[in-house]
Design a protein around this nucleic acid. Structure first.
Lengths: 218, 218
DNA sequence: ATACGGTCTAAGCACCGCTCAGATAGGCGG
DNA sequence: CCGCCTATCTGAGCGGTGCTTAGACCGTAT
């Protein structure tokens, strides 16, 4: 060890913010807040997500362990921030999908696949969104609002198929779809699905399940 | 040399194992391994599950921080041990339920409710079973075997309702039921269900969802 | 009675989250 | 131009954590 951390951005010229990094609050690092979020996402998406630590993030970015605390109140603050971004991202993904799909029944299938794609391709976000420590803070208004954005979108999609349903019933239907898909994703990540449900069957399987839950007797 | 262990419980009477704690391998503590599991379950079931630590458990039991390592290889070893117990417990619960229910359709409802009851009443076990760090170790043969016990039980129950289904299809159906129920439990614990699905509707709601998934077109 | 093995303690290493005093850099009014 | 102000970052440090090691202790087998 030693060496390395000694003087990284102190070498010759003083300013790290060299080329005026285009935008943001460029200072020593450039935009440490954004950089922290990006690196955290990478770690969350990896296999060793549970050992995500502020110190590790700081190390990767070449700053001291105290630096992150000028951009996030604490560890949970960063995770909640990522979860909010994640819900916005999921909502955007579903909106785009539905818009491109038109009004026929295929939208159900497309939205289902969009959810799965988001969960797997944006695994960092998905993890942050459903991390126990984040869920425990669901009272944070911004987080709740972001989550409602996605949920309400699903509700509207259901209402389009069952215009006669009462609000409470629509809401329940949405919960049941979300529970099913979240369960599939979680159990896949947890491992036990590996042997019982081949990966290549999963998407078709999920769509079938969603249809079954949508067609519940009314 | 030097040092010499001060002698803490050497004072007057030597024995820690005083009252001959009734059974088990009574030594200093009595049965530290079992005691660790029980206290860990309590912590896991509580709201601050994420700060379960060996040191905390040792503190609660009045032993030093190194003592637990003579009974469990490491933290994960204890958690896996609890998860195995949990799967056995779930299997036992489902078996009893089904046996008491007879052969009619009501068994589906009873098994569904048994799963929910287990998840909520044995929250410590349920948490241990689906903790990310535990799921990552699903290769441990004993853990896999315990999990298969419950899963295969569900498969047999499905086969009873759809005798003509191929093995792969039965397995998929079981996955879909499990995903749905696990999703409901997880989202309930995560928070977002709170406002969308009243607690008193949850059991009925879960049964309806299970029926829908069971009746999938074949 | 002695040797032995399972159980526990004491001490310590490396890592973690988080805090605080102070150095540094850039923007502001004078 | 200067000096001040604020945001940012560093270095050091506190208490907590997982895990290891050396040694003390107990109960039992020999």
């Amino acid at each position: 060890m030693a060496a390395q951390a000694k003087s990284i951005n102190r070498g010759s010229s003083p300013g790290r913010p060299k080329g005026r990094t285009s935008s943001s609050s460029a200072y020593h690092h450039g935009d440490l807040r954004q950089a922290l979020k990006e690196v955290a996402l990478e770690v969350l998406a990896g296999p060793d997500a549970h050992l995500l630590s502020f110190r590790e993030l700081a190390r990767r970015l070449g700053v001291t362990t105290a630096a992150p605390y000028h951009h996030f109140k604490d560890r949970a603050d960063l995770l909640v921030s990522l979860a909010i971004d994640g819900f916005h991202c999921l909502h955007a993904s579903m909106s785009q999908t539905a818009e491109a799909a038109g009004r026929d029944d295929s939208v159900v299938e497309k939205l289902t696949l969009a959810y799965l794609d988001f969960a797997y391709e944006q695994r960092g976000y998905y993890c942050a969104m459903f991390l126990p420590e984040v869920c425990a803070l669901r009272d944070v208004p911004e987080l709740r609002a972001a989550a409602d954005l996605s949920f309400d979108y699903v509700c509207r999609a259901i209402l389009h198929f069952h215009p006669q349903l009462a609000e409470q019933e629509v809401s329940e239907r949405a919960v049941s779809l979300w529970s099913f898909l979240h369960g599939v994703v979680t159990l896949r990540a947890a491992g036990p699905l590996g042997r019982r449900l081949p990966q290549e069957r999963e998407r078709e399987f999920a769509v079938e399940g969603v249809w079954a839950l949508l067609r519940l007797p009314e």
